[in-house]
Design a binder for these strands. Structure first.
Length: 359
DNA sequence: GGTATTTGACCGAG
DNA sequence: CTCGGTCAAATACC
């Protein structure tokens, strides 16, 4: 990359870091009077995130003009190696990803595009004592499209793709697999980043059917009575632990343990994926959209998918969904407290100006 | 009836 | 040929 874009990248990153820090600080304010253990834990997490955001911002300033070795890079296809920095919500540094992905999407076929998608892994520990058993919602809507028994693995691997693949040409996928060593740990491999503009739905998390599907206690056992996960989430959100690996060795972001974007739906099901959630704790809400750009711009490729009846159904419902999400977020009076979980959604300048950034 | 999941089949890479 | 990843028809759920 030429130095000019480096500088621009640094600038954008700096803004994002500072903004993220502010957002986390605001959330932290909500938790200052925390009483329950989970709230206290959430507060600690936020504190960590605030500190790391400002550390990152400072390090950018300190190195401004010098080599941008910390810069997130998307390297070769499926290298499995350190490719991305991870933001506090567990997503890759999106401004860079966005650039790279846009380039990839312009140049590549879907197949090739997928091969070029960044890959990173998170390990999520769940606490079965809470009656919950599955990795957290990461704020996006996922649809399961397959499950495979993996050779040598005790537990099957589940495959998810973004619900809005057809509608918004979002090629993000993830694989969820329970760890052999520790059944309370799930390895979640993300491939590709979300180019969709919606990450969460407003309103309380609907108990989605997929949350009943199970990779429960024993391998190949998939039935589990549905519990009141919504209640459980309230007490459980603070128990979430996310670690990342396969990230850049020379990447400062690694110092910050990636945290999921709260709140997390935390069904007992490792396969849960429907985004949603969020309304029970406004301080954790990530708005579905920034309400700014490109809801429909990438909607060109759905024809390339199978002329499957249900696919068209998905497409139609997604359109309606997006429209409603769009309007609702625009009209929300509470937006001031919130940022999209994925800065990718936003024009950095817009974010800077419109979010009440006090500078 | 609409939507999401399940699961065997299929395909490509190694 | 084997295995991982994806597709898509069948099925389940609401």
């Amino acid at each position: 990359m030429e130095s000019g874009s480096n500088l621009s990248w640094e600038y954008n990153t700096l803004i994002n870091e500072l903004t993220q820090g502010m957002e986390n600080a605001k959330q932290l304010r909500f938790h200052l009077c925390a009483t329950s253990a989970s709230e206290v834990e959430a507060r600690d997490l936020l504190l960590q995130r605030v500190l790391s955001s400002y550390e990152n911002a400072l390090s950018i300033l300190n190195r401004n003009g010098s080599s941008s070795d910390r810069q997130a890079q998307i390297v070769g296809p499926m290298s499995g190696g350190p490719e991305l920095s991870i933001s506090a919500d567990g997503s890759p540094r999106s401004e860079d990803l966005n650039r790279n992905l846009m380039r990839d999407q312009q140049e590549c076929s879907p197949t090739k595009k997928r091969k070029l998608q960044p890959t990173w892994t998170e390990q999520v520990r769940v606490n079965s004592e809470n009656g919950l058993d599955g990795p957290s919602d990461d704020g996006y809507s996922w649809r399961k499209y397959g499950q495979k028994d993996i050779l040598g693995a005790k537990y099957p691997r589940s495959y998810y793709r973004c619900t809005y693949r057809l509608v918004q040409n979002c090629w993000a996928t993830k694989q969820v697999q329970r760890s052999d060593e520790d059944p309370n740990v799930f390895d979640i491999t993300f491939k590709g980043t979300h180019t969709c503009t919606r990450s969460t739905k407003a309103g309380p998390p609907p108990p989605s059917p997929d949350q009943k599907q199970e990779l429960q206690q024993s391998p190949q056992t998939h039935q589990q009575p549905q519990q009141n996960q919504y209640q459980s989430l309230l007490s459980f959100k603070g128990n979430l632990r996310v670690s990342t690996n396969n990230l850049g060795d020379n990447n400062n972001y690694n110092e910050t343990p990636a945290q999921f974007t709260f709140p997390s739906t935390y069904p007992e099901n490792p396969d849960f994926h429907l985004g949603s959630s969020s309304s029970y704790c406004p301080s954790f809400v990530s708005p579905a959209t920034s309400g700014t750009n490109s809801y429909f711009s990438p909607v060109n490729n759905y024809q390339s998918f199978g002329a499957n009846r249900s696919n068209y159904q998905h497409f139609e419902s997604d359109i309606a969904d997006i429209i409603s999400a769009h309007t609702s977020t625009d009209n929300s009076p509470s937006r001031g407290m919130e940022f999209p979980s994925d800065p990718l959604d936003m024009d950095p300048n817009f974010l800077f100006n419109a979010s009440g950034f006090y500078m």
